[in-house]
Design a protein around this nucleic acid. Sequence first.
DNA 1: GTCTATACCCAGATAGAC
DNA 2: GTCTATCTGGGTATAGAC
Lengths: 202, 202
Amino acid sequence: MGEDTDGGAPRRDGRSTDTAHRIREVALELFIRQGFSRTTLQDIADELGLTRAALYYHHPSKDHLIASLVQPAKDDIDGFLTHAETDHLSTRELLEGFFDLNYRHRMIFLALVRDPTGLGSVDAEGWVTQLAAQAQRLLAGDEPTTDDRLRALVAINGLSRCATVLPDVPHDELREHSVALAMEIVAGIRGHPGAEPGRQPR
Amino acid sequence: MGEDTDGGAPRRDGRSTDTAHRIREVALELFIRQGFSRTTLQDIADELGLTRAALYYHHPSKDHLIASLVQPAKDDIDGFLTHAETDHLSTRELLEGFFDLNYRHRMIFLALVRDPTGLGSVDAEGWVTQLAAQAQRLLAGDEPTTDDRLRALVAINGLSRCATVLPDVPHDELREHSVALAMEIVAGIRGHPGAEPGRQPR
DNA sequence: GTCTATACCCAGATAGAC
DNA sequence: GTCTATCTGGGTATAGAC
């Protein structure tokens, strides 16, 4: 988990021990351990030796807190798709990049899978559908057949799934096989954009 | 849990228009329209001209109410998988059956996707993972390679996704293409169980 | 057997003192 | 920046009217 953000923290000088930041750390940990809905603000406050009210000074609401944890992943993916669109990535680059994205943020995604309640705090519905549409257009073009749509959907969906679930598989192996499988699925799209001329249908 | 679907309803003769049943109807409608979390017991009671407490007479809690709506789908799927295991269904039968199941209950699944809050009411976590494991074993056998696991995961996951999302595609077309794609994915499993000897890899 | 009235408690959220 | 106090919404629970 990375650089992570910095929600509404006041000071931007080298200082690090922002309470806001510590709150996010503890919150993420608890959310992953026991899910969003079963983690109360009281739990978080207790863990930090604070009161609920103190949390509100740093984060306007529980929803916002959750959103601020998901936001980096969201931005990352959105940015990648935009970049993919403008820079005409090859299919392989697209799928690899998408896997890496999902893998990088797998902890949050895992938390969201285990307790999807958290999706309610972020836009989710709009986001996921729009994301799916965008990925579909990249993979299947502007006038996809039903089969094309299905392939794009299943490939993207599967890729995301493979990257988050399956913690016991080592990264390199997981990545290689996941992308290969996605490539195979997408290969069935008629004259799929970014196709590598020499590919074998199977 | 078990028989039910008929919360605490008193009469068990042929009668149908039990209050308990009307509650479920109204509840499902509201849940689909505005999500689980944003639908309060008050909303449901108001719609029926009752009080919250009256609901309590028929259903022990909101969680139970939600669970009773999801239960049929759950039982249906569990039953199918058990049946598939004991009766050694072919891969095609398995995938077709799984699609049909997901399609039949797509309204509830859609509601659960749109507001995953409801998943908290049912076991969800345990259920889904166990279900995935079971499906994987059916498709990939007892000692799957990583690639096998991925294929089973992506196929099942994709099938479920295709059946619920994509309301604009007519049923027959959707079913045909979804199953075909799943078959294609699963075909890559080495000597996959239930393989039809004469199949073409693509 | 079916429902109302009412109280209860928890967790999210706000106001204002320090 | 953190506290105490308080409000609110809503799920839970019981007693009792009919």
